[in-house]
Design a binder for these strands. Structure first.
Lengths: 191, 191
DNA sequence: TTCATTTCTTAAACTACATTAAGTTTTTTC
DNA sequence: GAAAAAACTTAATGTAGTTTAAGAAATGAA
């Protein structure tokens, strides 16, 4: 299956997009492959792109004051990912976006963004629904961060996404869950 | 100024809403006042409403396993607040929404939600932009939670929102920032 | 204007998790 | 398939923040 049709398929889960409308959208989309560990954004650059993951896995992270990588977000199949602050205001990013695996992505450029919504107002609804899901996910994530211990967060995440836990290195997962790789080792060691 | 006009004004910062369109929207809005400490949602209820704060302050919190209140969100003037998971899927909420001060709110009911977007598709854009801001705020918040110590988070928040810090009790602020009220006292004591 | 309630403070004892450092295993590369 | 690089483990030591508990201050109610 051609890459962009994965996005059309996803959009059609939320709104009805006719063939004509797909053709209007097409020129705004660029699809390509990134290999494992390649960067789509680095600290200091302006984030010019919103990425849709067709296949594979991207992660958003920053380097904290102690020099450690802090992964704040993963994006797998059918998720969008970007540094929204940098993307919206076209200012320097403090984040990196990196491929955690070889990944197929579809990109929409910031300089096309307004035009795209202008030509296809229907997409307002699609992105509203996507952002609503995002917001919902954020609310749940904050709740877990505030109510569970490190060990509970790991066990909970592991029970929700057992296959995903296998896909990424433990040090990425540890920082995503808010603790150190050493502590994750310790948790896994018992039982 | 009448309450709902505060919302129209806010909407008009993002999209153009004609007088006619305002009249279409009006029947979907209910505005009222809640007094300090009153609840708009309690754990176990289904969240049927999305709230817009005209004036005052609402907070979203839950009770953790140890019985402590964990404030995960505040909403002040011109912010929307709801338990999105409960609101979207009309399932039992694990949260409380409580007035931190006497508060003027505008409410949109879940059973009007789809109809509202149907009659006023323009609002898709408004809510997309609002949710985009939300998502951006979430990304920044997660970054701060992952990179700063409790003390740094307090000082940073305090420098960004000095007036707000005065408005709410310290125990709400402490849990919002992810630590105990006792620790906040300690931080404030030094210097 | 007093009594009750809520909020804030202080300090000692405790703990979940971080840090450091060295060694081991796994994966990648050529 | 050997060497290098990346990822993971283990364990001792350290610390930021919690817990508990009691008292003080502020706020609210009658």
């Amino acid at each position: 299956m051609e890459m962009v049709s994965a996005l059309y398929k996803h959009i059609n889960k939320f709104i009805d997009l006719s063939n004509d409308e797909q053709e209007i959208l097409a020129p705004f989309l660029k699809s390509f492959t990134v290999r494992k560990k390649a960067f789509l954004l680095s600290q200091g650059q302006t984030c010019r792109t919103n990425y849709f993951v067709v296949k594979g896995c991207l992660r958003l992270y920053f380097i904290d004051i102690k020099g450690a990588e802090q992964t704040t977000q993963f994006a797998i199949e059918n998720w969008w990912i970007t540094d929204l602050t940098s993307f919206l205001f076209q200012e320097q990013s403090e984040f990196y976006i990196q491929a955690a695996e070889a990944t197929e992505v579809i990109a929409i450029e910031h300089h096309h963004y307004d035009e795209m919504f202008h030509k296809l107002p229907k997409l307002e609804r699609y992105f509203r629904l996507i952002l609503q899901k995002n917001h919902q996910a954020s609310q749940r994530r904050i709740k877990f961060l505030y109510s569970q211990t490190a060990e509970e967060r790991y066990r909970h995440f592991n029970s929700l996404f057992p296959e995903f836990v296998q896909r990424v290195p433990q040090y990425m997962l540890a920082s995503y869950l808010g603790f150190t790789p050493e502590f994750l080792s310790k948790i896994r060691a018992k039982k």
